[in-house]
Amino acid sequence: MSLTVALIAIGLLALIFGLVLGYASIKFKVEGDPLVDQIDEILPQTQCGQCGYPGCRPYAEAIANGDEINKCPPGGEATIKQLADLMGVEAKPLDAAHGEEDEKKVAFIREDECIGCTKCIQACPVDAILGAAKHMHTVITDECTGCDLCVDPCPVDCIDMVPVSPTTTSWTWDFDKTPKGDIPIKMVS
């Protein structure tokens, strides 16, 4: 008798908790994967595809599913470190198979050589190239992520990747390069 009571009681409890859990899973359903968003946030968004995925978000999804974190050359060591912190794994050096970390560049079209084939426009992942068929194209420098994807499709090879030179507004004080110091600060009195 007591055994059946216990069984029924436990059974009821199981049912109630099951219902509660079931309800909670519907009510508090998480849309999408927050981890993917976090990873995507860290990636540099060049959309260059050097990692082997068609864009940064697909790579973020792949990382969330257990892919290596060292396939992003534009992000470089800094991104790998941040990803390692986020994923709780060991940071490792950049996988050379996907390219090397390089200085920041933007595409530049030698405009008098452009034949207006629109191929680079189709290749650009961020729509940073402006032009029309049989008319000269040009790059919107501010929007260019330096992904390199427009260089190969160009039939006349008129696209160069130009390094972005620092300006006085983008320059950072580099402590290591100026050990003597740029500012005097202290007086002898």
């Binding site: 864009g55 940064c56 978000r57 929007e143 992520t145 004080w173």
Partner: peptide, 27 residues
């Protein structure tokens, strides 16, 4: 020195973040 360097690095990171955000939107 340290503050100036930190400030400029933070500003640069902020700019980069904003650029990345814009690139993502455009993509």
């Amino acid at each position: 020195h340290y503050y100036r360097q930190a400030k400029s690095s933070i500003r640069q990171q902020r700019d980069e973040k904003a650029r990345a955000e814009k690139a993502r939107e455009r993509f």
